[in-house]
């Protein structure tokens, strides 16, 4: 009995793990994913930025909602004089930072990259993170979010931020002013307010063309790379800068989207829910047969071994 059972067990286990094993091979083929260049995005040119932080102020002014963005006090600031975020946070959607070392310095603006294949949307278990198929805006709905913070784990740029200090917390990230400035004026507040023209808003293809033009016209000003063009499958927020992007706090990333990779594995295992159902049915057959055998031999002192 045991031997036969073992064989059946392995058969069932084989069924179950077929999906798992199948995941090994196709992982490499996951990057076949074309960027949709008609989506909206932004181009931030660090060499044009003057560090005035008008974008930060405008963002908070436009997107302040109860329970949303708030001002952040620096440690040394006893009187609450300034809004001094040190990083993106549950209170801050966009932020200008400064990189400085012996080789040079550069401002850098942080905000959501609005990926072509966003990890946060891929992992959100309740579809609180969504990507608009037309504009490409990655938006968040607090009314659906369960606060599991999987989006934070998944995001390669560490963009979604959680309100750790609030009783009713939510995830905070840039939505290109989708419900505020973009709706009212057709342009996100930061791009609208930027006095230096460092933030351009537009279609991804136009932004890419503009970025390439700038790289061509002033090759001495820039690192010859458009950050976001290929990173993790492409992002709608693009960067130009004079210093290597890694030093500006932007992670050096491969061109494959992690979301495509993980979805492929997940879909292989659960395609049509066939594997789990097959597993269940075969296990049921085995268990029921075992049970019947057990009943057929009431209280045997020794179970006879069956040869196969």
């Amino acid at each position: 009995m045991s031997r036969q059972n073992r064989r059946e067990f392995f058969k069932a286990a084989g069924l179950a793990s077929a999906g798992l094993v199948a995941t090994v091979t196709p992982a490499a083929a996951s990057s076949a994913h074309l960027p949709d260049n008609a989506q909206s995005g932004m181009l931030y040119d660090a060499t044009k930025c003057v560090g005035c932080k008008a974008c930060m102020t405008a963002c908070k002014r436009v997107n302040a909602r109860p329970g949303g963005l708030a001002f952040e006090q620096a440690k040394f600031d006893q009187d609450g004089l300034w809004d001094a975020p040190e990083d993106l946070s549950g209170n801050t959607r966009t932020l200008i930072k400064l990189f400085k070392d012996t080789k040079g310095w550069s401002y850098v603006k942080y905000s959501c990259m609005h990926c072509q294949k966003p990890s946060c949307v891929s992992v959100c278990p309740v579809s609180a993170m969504t990507k608009d198929p037309v504009t490409g805006i990655v938006d968040y709905s607090k009314d659906v979010c369960i606060g599991c913070r999987y989006c934070q784990v998944a995001c390669p740029f560490n963009i979604p931020k959680f309100q750790w200090d609030r009783t009713l917390p939510r995830i905070v990230k840039c939505d290109l002013c989708r419900n505020t400035n973009l709706k009212d004026k057709g342009i996100p507040a930061c791009a609208e307010t930027c006095p230096a023209g460092a933030i351009l808003f537009g279609k991804r293809k136009d932004l890419l063309a503009e970025a390439r033009t700038r790289l061509r016209q002033h090759p001495e000003r820039y690192v010859p790379h458009i950050y976001g063009e290929h990173e993790i499958g492409g992002t709608n927020h693009l960067y130009l800068a004079a210093l290597p992007f890694g030093s500006l706090g932007l992670p050096v990333l491969p061109s494959d989207a992690p979301a495509a990779f993980s979805e492929q594995i997940q879909h292989t295992i659960y395609k049509g829910f066939i594997a789990p159902i097959a597993l269940y049915v075969s296990l049921c057959c085995i268990a029921v047969r075992n049970l019947k055998k057990g009943e057929a031999q009431p209280a045997p002192a020794v179970t006879p071994k069956k040869e196969v």
Partner: peptide, 29 residues
């Protein structure tokens, strides 16, 4: 623990709302 850890546990009912299901998410599974 998950209920303690979730930031917005009152929205957890969305796991049972079919329109919110997200089959790409390992966590949903």
């Amino acid at each position: 623990s998950v209920m303690v850890d979730l930031g917005r546990p009152w929205n957890a009912y969305n796991f049972f709302v079919p329109s919110k299901w997200q089959f790409n998410s390992a966590m949903f599974e």
